[in-house]
């Protein structure tokens, strides 16, 4: 394609967008709204995935011991656990330390635990970290088989629950996103239809002069793509700004209290930009192709 043809397409499409200001704004607005919703779902899914991955890498096995074991026996158990294949480390947490940690985590409300020092209900435990989180079930079974073990827990259930949430999030978002995409495509195709109508005389003349199909269609196609792109750029801007402030707020307010942290801003921005720009272009080109096919029989 020649550069001046590109220039001609660009000029014509920008002119049309400007001429049908109201419809163009409506198109951009609808693309923006659809992409905002898509973007919010995307951010949620990304963060849940991020969290799941983080939890998975942090899988640790908690081994609660039977009460009242002697230091020698505890030492022997420790040696035995460390000897298992795949175990990276095994740290002993005494029940006094466990109570202290618990009380600290309660902060101002630590008075709730007052008086428990003499009759600590918690048990001594080991925190076992693994070289590979996938070994967790296997190591758990091996430890369970040892003597003097009360119970063994690892964060499997939480992980699975989280993955369930991601699944529903994905399916639910798919339905809403599909509806919003259809609406945007429809509105864009209507906008292009107006442009085709406004330029029908010119199109007729072009056909008699011998313009090729794609030359006639080019500006309309580009108009749709531009509308989609503008809508997606606005939505990316809004989402990025929103996420930036929310992430900062979460970090300032909750850091330390929760194990959870949000996905870093840079990473979210990258995924958002790539996928929403792609969505915008797809919506725009679909919309214009529909009206070109329907109203521009060249």
């Amino acid at each position: 394609m020649k550069i001046r043809t590109c220039k001609y397409f660009a000029k014509q499409s920008v002119k049309s967008i400007w001429r049908n200001k109201v419809m163009s704004l409506a198109s951009i607005g609808s693309v923006m709204a659809a992409l905002l919703v898509i973007g919010i779902f995307l951010i949620l899914v990304l963060n849940v995935d991020y969290l799941a991955a983080k939890l998975e890498s942090q899988v640790e096995i908690k081994v609660h011991l039977v009460d009242g074991l002697s230091d020698t026996i505890i030492g022997e158990i420790r040696k035995e656990i460390k000897g298992l294949s795949g175990v990276k480390d095994c740290v002993f947490v005494s029940k006094d330390k466990a109570l202290k940690d618990f009380s600290e985590s309660l902060g101002e409300n630590s008075y709730l635990l007052e008086g428990l020092e003499g009759d600590n209900p918690l048990s001594d435990s080991f925190v076992v970290t693994l070289e590979d989180p996938r070994l967790a079930p296997q190591v758990t079974l091996a430890i369970k088989a040892m003597s003097n073990i009360e119970n063994v827990v690892y964060g499997k259930e939480e992980l699975e629950k989280l993955l369930d949430v991601t699944y529903f999030l994905r399916v639910g978002s798919l339905v809403i996103v599909a509806i919003l995409l259809l609406i945007s495509v429809f509105i864009i195709s209507n906008t292009i239809k107006l442009t085709v109508y406004a330029r029908r005389r010119e199109i007729g003349i072009m056909k008699y002069i011998g313009a090729t199909d794609w030359f006639v269609r080019g500006p309309f196609f580009l108009e749709g793509v531009l509308l989609g792109l503008i809508g997606s750029i606005i939505s990316i801007g809004l989402l990025a700004t929103g996420y930036y402030y929310i992430a900062r707020y979460v970090e300032q307010q909750m850091f330390g209290l929760l194990v959870i942290s949000l996905m870093p801003f840079q990473e979210v921005l990258k995924s958002l930009t790539v996928s929403l720009l792609a969505f915008g272009v797809v919506i725009g080109s679909l919309g214009s192709m529909i009206s070109i096919r329907k109203f521009l029989k060249v």
């Binding site: 005389r201 003349i205 056909k207 008699y208 002069i209 011998g210 313009a211 030359f215």
Partner: peptide, 30 residues
């Protein structure tokens, strides 16, 4: 069609273009 020029009873000129631009338009589209 590039090898067949056509004129009609109703001229079919583009009103928002000058005489020069109307003629140049035919060359631009090819």
């Amino acid at each position: 069609r590039r090898n067949i020029g056509v004129v009609f009873q109703d001229f079919r000129l583009l009103q928002e273009k000058t005489v020069y631009e109307n003629v140049a338009f035919a060359m631009e589209v090819v």
